[in-house]
Simulated scan of single mutants.
Amino acid sequence: MPATADFVSTLYHGKGNPDKATVALTMALAARRKGHTVCLILMAEGVTLGVPGTADGINIGAPFEPAADLLRNFLQEGGRVAVCKSCMVHNGLDASQMDPRTEIITAPDVIDLLMGAKGSLQVA
């Protein structure tokens, strides 16, 4: 995994806070569509979005797209999704449950991504 990305969005929420999950996904996709390299870091409850199908049903309504569409488009358009390993384990998940397009990262990787980014969004 490259140590840096132009834009890093850190998401701490999943189905428990659909507004924040949707906003983070929307901004990550917007940054990617502007041509930036983008890494979406999933932490805390947000790691659940690394499990295929978890974003299904998260839809806060217009003008926002459903979370599953945002995540699918983000990945298809070259966005990177990184899953915090400690948060994943804490939430009772393991790497075999994650979408194979995700990257499992550790705390030092998070620091490298944030310190190397030109911009970031922390959705806590």
Rank of each mutant, 00 (worst) to 15 (best):
G61C: 04
T4E: 07
A3D: 11
G35N: 01
A30D: 08
E65L: 07
L70P: 04
V8T: 11
D112I: 01
L25Q: 03
S96K: 13
E65V: 03
G57K: 14
D19F: 13
A95W: 01
T26M: 05
H90P: 01
M88W: 00
A21Y: 11
Q122L: 15
V123T: 12
A124Y: 08
P63I: 11
N73R: 14
N59K: 02
D56T: 06
A67C: 15
A30L: 04
A117P: 04
L49F: 08
P108F: 06
G61V: 06
H90G: 12
I105E: 05
D69W: 10
G92Q: 10
N17V: 03
T10F: 10
S9K: 00
A117S: 14
N73Q: 15
A95P: 05
R80M: 11
D69L: 11
I111F: 09
F7M: 04
D112V: 04
D56A: 10
D56Y: 02
N59S: 08
L11M: 11
E45S: 07
L113H: 05
T22Y: 14
N91L: 09
L93N: 04
E65I: 00
N17R: 09
A28K: 02
A68Y: 11
L70T: 05
R101L: 15
M98L: 15
T10I: 15
I58M: 14
K85M: 06
E45A: 15
T10C: 09
Y12M: 07
A68T: 01
Q122K: 03
L25M: 13
D112P: 00
V123C: 09
G14E: 07
V89M: 09
P66F: 13
P108V: 09
F64R: 00
D94Q: 10
V47A: 09
T48G: 11
G116R: 11
Y12H: 12
D19G: 02
T37G: 08
A62I: 13
A44H: 14
G78H: 03
I105C: 10
P2E: 02
D112H: 10
R33G: 03
R80H: 12
P100V: 13
A62P: 06
L121E: 01
A107F: 11
E77K: 07
L42Q: 02
K85R: 13
V51Y: 14
V123P: 05
A3G: 11
R80I: 10
R32S: 01
P108C: 10
L121P: 03
A5W: 03
A31V: 00
P66Q: 04
E45Y: 12
G61Y: 10
C87K: 08
L71D: 08
A82C: 07
N59I: 05
G16P: 03
F64V: 00
M1Q: 02
P63E: 12
V89R: 10
R101F: 06
C39A: 13
K85Q: 15
F74T: 00
S86I: 00
M27L: 15
T26H: 15
P100E: 15
E77I: 06
I58S: 05
L42P: 03
E77H: 13
G61I: 08
H90C: 00
A21V: 02
G35L: 06
M1F: 12
L114E: 07
G116I: 12
M1Y: 04
G16K: 09
G92E: 12
L11G: 07
V23D: 09
A117I: 00
C84Q: 04
T102Y: 07
I60P: 02
C39W: 00
A5F: 01
G119F: 02
V81A: 11
G92R: 09
Q76K: 14
Q122N: 06
V23T: 05
L93W: 09
